[in-house]
Design a protein around this nucleic acid. Structure first.
Lengths: 141, 141
DNA sequence: TTGATTTTGAAATTCAATATCAATTATAGC
DNA sequence: GCTATAATTGATATTGAATTTCAAAATCAA
């Protein structure tokens, strides 16, 4: 069992929620996919494992995964909310190209540390954050 | 005439767009309002100045103002896109409280500098960015 | 095993974002 | 000022992601 599955089980226990087959399959598939997934994307992949899984469940499970700090919301500026898992990934920001739509994952641990400091200065307890820079990428310039 | 109006006129000229009464009124009202405004919010305010102004025009004008770098998109996590003007404001991030919904504007020039550096390192030309930290504010803790 | 409670999936609903289109308006060139 | 051309407008319709609904099914503590 992966660490993420353990985190999820703990989270569900804490909230008096149940561990269902659907939730297990959705998390499993989610962790194995290295992409920014919309609800529909993940639904299409999960369906292959268990054709009875519905979109609503995927939607609800992604919300739970975000609360459990296993998933991260990403906005690529196309009007759909996308998710990525945190498994095996350092913190990173997204540089989203307005020309080709591709996104680069850029890491800077200093930024995160400064963000935490900023929160502390305001007595604010951070839970998650969203950070996307939109512009033109190297190739499109 | 404010600097912003000048910026807007230049932008419109560059794009071969026209300066209309509606656009002037919408920008004027937008600059005078110190709040995070949804399209509907701004529509309701602008309507008082000129009751013939339609939502669609407000929506389209806000888009133009963002392109002209006069407006900034803000996500307060309630599913509506909001806008704030940049007039008289330093760059700032938003700390959005998940309990009470209020948002704190927090400034850290170091973060912005690091972000620019990050972009440069990836050959990326930044145009705008979105940065919101969600958590619990001082009062709600 | 039981029973209270949660979960599920199909379908319906909501609602912000966006497109449509005929009428109106801005502006460059005469 | 006029005219032609292209852009703009606002009411309305449409889209589509996000969310809710609800009866049937599944979970799990006792």
């Amino acid at each position: 069992m992966s660490g993420e599955m353990g985190m999820f089980i703990s989270y569900l226990k804490k909230k008096d929620l149940k561990l269902t087959d659907q939730r297990k399959i959705i998390l499993d598939v989610f962790l194995k996919t290295e992409r920014h997934l919309s609800v529909e994307d993940l639904y299409n992949i999960a369906k292959k494992k268990d054709s009875s899984i519905g979109q609503a469940t995927v939607f609800r499970t992604l919300k739970l995964l975000r609360e459990a700090d296993i998933a991260k919301e990403v906005d690529l500026g196309d009007g759909k909310t996308r998710y990525e898992h945190k498994y095996g990934h350092e913190h990173h920001d997204h540089l989203v190209c307005l020309e080709c739509g591709r996104s680069i994952e850029a890491v800077d641990s200093k930024i995160e540390r400064l963000q935490d400091g900023l929160c502390r200065k305001h007595g604010f307890l951070p839970q998650r954050h969203k950070m996307e820079i939109f512009g033109i990428c190297k190739k499109c310039r």
